[in-house]
Design a protein around this nucleic acid. Structure first.
Length: 271
DNA sequence: GCCGGATGGTAAG
DNA sequence: TTACCCTCCGGCG
């Protein structure tokens, strides 16, 4: 589920598993053969996440940029012995990193490439503040919203306004702050924005820790704890078209905003 | 077992 | 605006 929480989680896990270790690198699919050859035998120095982007820094001076897009997936396989045969890869495996006790495989990414510092800066310059980063500045997001006439539902998907939020979080965030998605971004009140930012921080952080998106207060779905909620009970409105709102029972509506499905309760999120 | 859809973004037209 | 990337998962049979 690649919204920002997935990316920060991958950064944390990959950093812990691979930092300081030399790895073998190759591209079973072949589309990243030259890049993998450049990384082969190098040591991972650090991993940085910003929004939905990952940056891996290597002892060679190279930076590996990964963007999962909608389909990209990482798979890690533990190894007992360094001389154990490698696990099979799917034909689409773009990059494989092999350490003594771990194999990391990447398939289906939107981007997997080596970047120089100029390209890296260009990518980062396009990104708005990321609530999961310690250097995130909410005032930058507030200023960006004030400049836009587009609906708030569209602004939340614009990675230059705020980075790391995807379609699930945008729908759920607007529900929990009670804002109609079609309202112009610039008309959001300051107290609504503060609630939006803090809920965004809270949702993303919980997602990073658990590896899944759970936005409901468990008491709203008749559960004691958010842990192990079944798939149909994790959200207030996302993918619940026509089903009763969990708080007021009004049917959830669905329509397109910024080329993606938007879900909202017309009563809890008044226009 | 097959089919359709999706958590996203880029580049072509 | 449309095509594309080519993953996994859930619904259906």
């Amino acid at each position: 589920m690649p919204e920002g929480h997935t990316i920060h989680r991958a950064a944390r896990l990959h950093r812990r598993a691979l930092r300081g270790r030399p790895v073998r690198a190759d591209s079973p699919q072949g589309r990243f053969a030259a890049g993998a050859a450049a990384l082969d035998g190098c040591t991972l120095l650090d991993v940085e996440a910003h929004g939905k982007h990952l940056f891996y820094r290597w002892s060679s001076g190279d930076t590996l940029h990964v963007h999962l897009g909608l389909f990209g997936k990482f798979r890690t396989v533990a190894r007992q012995h360094p001389d154990e045969p490698l696990p099979p890869t799917t034909p689409g495996t773009r990059l494989r990193l092999v350490a003594d006790d771990l194999v990391l495989q990447l398939a289906g990414p939107t981007d997997c490439s080596l970047m120089d510092p100029v390209e890296e800066d260009r990518v980062k310059a396009r990104l708005g503040p990321d609530p999961l980063r310690s250097d995130a500045d909410p005032e930058a997001m507030w200023a960006a919203l004030r400049r836009r006439r587009i609906p708030i539902g569209a602004a939340l998907l614009d990675q230059s306004v705020v980075s790391g939020i995807g379609n699930v979080y945008r729908c759920e965030l607007l529900y929990v702050i009670g804002a109609w998605p079609g309202r112009p971004a610039r008309e959001l009140e300051r107290d609504e924005f503060d609630a939006l930012w803090s809920a965004g921080e809270r949702f993303l952080r919980a997602g990073e820790r658990s590896g899944r998106i759970i936005t409901v207060d468990p008491t709203d779905v008749g559960a004691r704890s958010a842990a192990r909620l079944p798939a149909g009970k994790r959200h207030y409105v996302y993918r619940r078209t026509g089903l009763p709102c969990r708080r007021c029972a009004t049917p959830v509506e669905r329509w397109e905003v910024a080329a993606r499905w938007m879900y909202a309760c017309p009563v809890c999120q008044p226009r």
